[in-house]
Simulated scan of single mutants.
Amino acid sequence: MASTPIIATLLKGMAMGAADVVPGVSGGTIAFITGIYERLLAALKSFTPAALLVLKREGWRPFWAYVDATFLCALFGGILLSIATLAHGIEFALAEYPLQVWGFFSGLILASTIYIGRQLHWRALVVLVAFCVGALAAIWLGSVKPVNIPINTLTIFAAGAIAICAMILPGISGSFLLLIMGVYPVIIAAVTEFNLKLLLTFMGGCVVGLLLFSHLLHWFLQRYRQPTLAFLCGVLAGSLSIVWPWKHAVVTVVDRHGETVPLVQRNLMPWDYESITGVSSAWPGVLTLFVVAVVMVFALEYGARRLQLKRAANAA
């Protein structure tokens, strides 16, 4: 595989980790934007009995290259570093400037949808159907009411396996699924308090889910690339309803920590938000960050395209 500089991969991992902390935003979206998505899936799916045979017959160095371990270590190192260092900051930003944060991520997701959409053959009926199914699935997911499952070793392990599948799907947020399952506050508290037992259990579930799901997703991309990309593009488009900044809580509930959290929310226009909630919509700041995010995505795409052309010219 073509090598990716370790520092660049580490930074991309940190961006993925930052996105995964926020309910409603997917690290898979960042992987797509930065051009490492399919390499990530290929590396994850390489962990098979064949990899163990390579290790047994040829030794560590060929095995390390076979599973693209340098890339994976740098990427997941960046993800873990980001989660460990940015959890407090993102919690603070969501608490103090939620509208601006959601505006920024709305821009990221819209630009990512356009980025993927430009790769699709829209005249094919199967592409249109797959896009609509993905969009409807994301909208439905955003309407699911959170539940409170019992917190024990088994449920934390299962939550990790489920959430990590979403974390590598562009547009579907693993953190949002954790929120739906009622374990998001538990995981964030474990990170900030460094509850090693709970974190190791959660990470064990993540590893199992990641290895199993990556094989399935890579298989679909290899055999049904256009419909699969269309489905992912639809999920991204539909997830805009989840991250829409201006929401009104129709139904609230008091969680196990005594905090009031929204159970059912309704999207509002900025002017309706102000009249209903009595709170400023902060639309200039939200719009500014939205535009910054859009420009950032297309700047990343432009830079990645220039880098690929440069590498191709050097190879020739």
Rank of each mutant, 00 (worst) to 15 (best):
P5D: 04
A8N: 04
G13L: 03
A19W: 11
G24Q: 00
V25D: 15
I30M: 06
I36V: 03
Y37I: 10
K45A: 13
S46D: 10
S46F: 13
T48E: 13
L55D: 12
F63I: 14
V67F: 02
L72T: 00
L75I: 01
L75Y: 12
F76P: 07
A84Y: 04
L86N: 12
E91K: 07
A93D: 10
F104D: 00
G107Y: 05
L110K: 11
Q119Y: 15
V127I: 15
V129E: 06
F131D: 06
A137D: 02
A138G: 01
V144M: 13
G160C: 10
I172Q: 04
G174A: 02
M181T: 02
G182E: 06
P185A: 03
A189R: 10
V191F: 03
H218D: 11
F220D: 09
R223M: 15
R225C: 01
P227A: 11
T228S: 11
F231A: 07
V235Q: 00
I242F: 13
I242S: 05
P245D: 03
W246L: 00
W246H: 02
A249H: 14
V250Y: 03
H257P: 11
P262H: 02
W271L: 04
E274I: 12
I276Y: 08
V279R: 12
S281P: 04
V286P: 06
V295S: 07
Y302E: 08
A304E: 06
R306W: 05
K310M: 14
A312V: 02
A316R: 10
